[in-house]
Each structure stands twice: as structure tokens, then as C-alpha cells.
Write a protein that binds this DNA or RNA. Structure first.
Lengths: 172, 172
DNA sequence: TTTATCGTGGATAATTTCTATCTGCAATAA
DNA sequence: TTATTGCAGATAGAAATTATCCACGATAAA
């Protein structure tokens, strides 16, 4: 069981974007630099977040990314599913049926109990992720984070956010 | 987020071994054949289960594998951790510190809030897995599984289980 | 004692997934 | 128009997973 490291980057970017004012945006390249990540690859993850309507992108010079809705309505589950995909971690290969003794497929119509138990656990996992909102992450960081680290973050946002004229963004 | 397919095989094997009588064993090759898996690779997973004291192995011509303790005291979590390892799915790479703006490391002594939230979710996942015992899986299968499928399983165990003289098994 | 069966561990290869980069294209503010 | 930015696709490298093979030690049965 493993999560791609893109998840961490995606959450950090979303948390950063939660701090921009109004409908301002931050360019993807700036986000990549602030986390020491390769821009090309980070954009892949940002695109996935955009495709899932978690971020909005504004093209053109002065463009960039911003949250598609308030941080109170974005959960960690939203972000994890956008980056990692919606498929469950456990996929039943129905190896029960793969042995040498072949019987009618109708004997396997009932879902495998093992699969059910694994999916139940994954529901618990997703439920826990769904309980944490992006705004909780930001609030906790602002309340308990080190002042020096917060100062760096605020300075970064100040320096890179770009106000947008209208609320227009990419409509898919 | 993904689980290796060895997990499914491991759980099925453990469930099968839960049906053998007394201290009898089943050879790994027989288990592999019954699930249509490559023997060489399945044995790797069985070895991990053995190393984690979930299975016991008996060498020699009449040897094989059996549960190391009653199915009531084996949970899905035991098996998943044995096969997939104990490391959490989310590993915080502390990308907060990787940007161009370097400040003292003491600013990052507090654990990342994102990491805490992800680990909390994983605890929920593991707790759910720990609630399901191997005996539950077997009982559910015997109660609700298709009779034809159960007949095949029982016949397989009958055909391949091998009584052992003593309770001796590999002592690591 | 000999032999055949079985588990163990290491080495190795094939396959897939993840990570990373590059390039051309579309959109848009200046 | 021009420069900046996001977007999509192709591609390649790295790493993990999956799979196979072989030599070895242990052991029950002949």
C-alpha cells in the first residue's frame, strides 16, 4: 500500500492557494519552485486537480491557479482521489475462479467476502480523509506552525499572487 | 494508492488453511495451483506470512503450511501488514523545506499537519482491517457462499491436507 | 541409507507503475 | 504582435512489483 508522492505536493499547493486573496492566482512555476519540485511534473498533478474542479486555471500571462471553491468545501479526500484516481486500493482479481477446477460462473455471483472486508476498510479510510477540510489544514498551520515558516509562506503568496480582472476561468 | 495483488492471494491462502483439520498442512504448490498462481511467487508471500508468525511451515516430503494460531486470532490487518509491510501509505517528504528560501531547521520541528491528517486516516483504515478476523471471513463464506464453490474448496482441502505427527514446526 | 518431496533463500529477468522532461499548441494580457 | 502562461501528448528514465529459476537444507518414506 503506497501513495504517490504527488499527493503531498498537491495538498501543499492547495493549502498555499487557500491563502491567496480574492480571485487572484499563482503560476504553477512559482508553486513548483517554492517546493523544490520540477515544474513539468507538478503541472501534471495540478491539471488533475483542475480536471476534478478542485482548482481553476487562468491562461495567459498573469494567469495561474486558484481554488475552484472555498477551502471549507475542499477535503483531503477530494485531493487524494483527484491525484490517485478513484479506484479502490484493493482490487479483487477473483482468484477463486482461476484454479484448475472449473465450475459454472454463476457460483461466483456473490461478491467475495474478502473483497467486501477490504472495501469496508477503504471506506473508513476515505471517510477519515473526507472529515479533514483544506481550511482545517490551513487554520492548524496558522495557529501552530512556526512563525518563521509562516512568514516565508506569507511572503511567497504576497510575491506571487496575481489579481484577476473577472471571475472568468476555464470552463470545461 | 494501490495494494499489491499478493494481498489477495495471501488472504485466500490463509482462509484455505483455516479449514484444515488439527495440525495438518497443505503444500504451497497445491495452494498455488488451486488459485492458478505461479508457485514460485506465491511462496514468497507465504514466506512473509511465515516470517510474521501468521503461518507455520513444515519441511520435508509430507510438509507444507498451516496457520500458526487459531483463525480467531488472525486479522486481515495482520495479513496485509505482513505482505505489504508496516510503513504507512503516506510518507511526508517535508517538501515544505525544499524550496529556495532556507530557514533554520528548527522551524520545522513540529510535525506537518498534512502528515498528521493522512496518518489519522490510515489509522482508521488499519483499525477497520483489524476488526475483521480470518474466522469471520471463513464463517461468512461457509454461510453465504455458493454450495458448488464450497464443495470445490472442501474437496481441495480434503485432497491436499496432510496430517503431521507432532506439533513441531519451524522455530525461528 | 537412499530417495523423493518440500520449504528457503538468493539471483535474476520481465513487467508495470511512477517520476520526470521535453515539445508544440492554445489562450490572453500588455 | 509579443511574451507569458496553462494544456496535452510523446517519450524516456527510475523504481517498484511481479515472476521465474536454481542450489541448498530438512525430512519422511521406501
Amino acid at each position: 500500500m503506497k501513495l504517490g508522492e504527488g499527493v503531498e505536493a498537491a495538498i501543499h499547493c492547495a493549502a498555499t492557494l487557500a491563502s491567496v486573496e480574492g480571485n487572484s492566482t499563482i503560476p504553477g512555476a512559482a508553486l513548483a519552485e517554492s517546493f523544490g519540485l520540477s515544474p513539468s511534473y507538478l503541472l501534471k498533478h495540478l491539471n488533475m486537480l483542475t480536471a476534478e474542479r478542485i482548482l481553476e486555471s487562468v491562461p495567459g500571462p498573469a494567469g495561474g491557479y486558484r481554488l475552484a471553491r472555498p477551502a471549507e468545501r475542499i477535503t483531503l479526500l477530494d485531493i487524494v482521489l483527484a491525484v490517485e484516481g478513484r479506484e479502490p486500493a484493493f482490487r479483487c482479481g477473483e482468484i477463486r475462479q482461476r484454479g484448475p477446477v472449473k465450475i459454472d460462473a454463476s457460483a461466483y455471483v456473490k461478491p467475495c467476502g474478502i473483497n467486501a472486508a477490504m472495501l469496508k476498510a477503504e471506506r473508513a479510510y476515505r471517510a477519515a480523509l473526507a472529515e479533514t477540510r483544506l481550511s482545517d489544514i490551513v487554520a492548524n498551520y496558522e495557529a501552530e506552525g512556526d512563525p518563521r515558516s509562516i512568514a516565508v509562506s506569507c511572503a511567497f503568496v504576497e510575491r506571487n499572487q496575481r489579481p484577476q480582472k473577472s471571475a472568468s476561468a476555464k470552463q470545461i
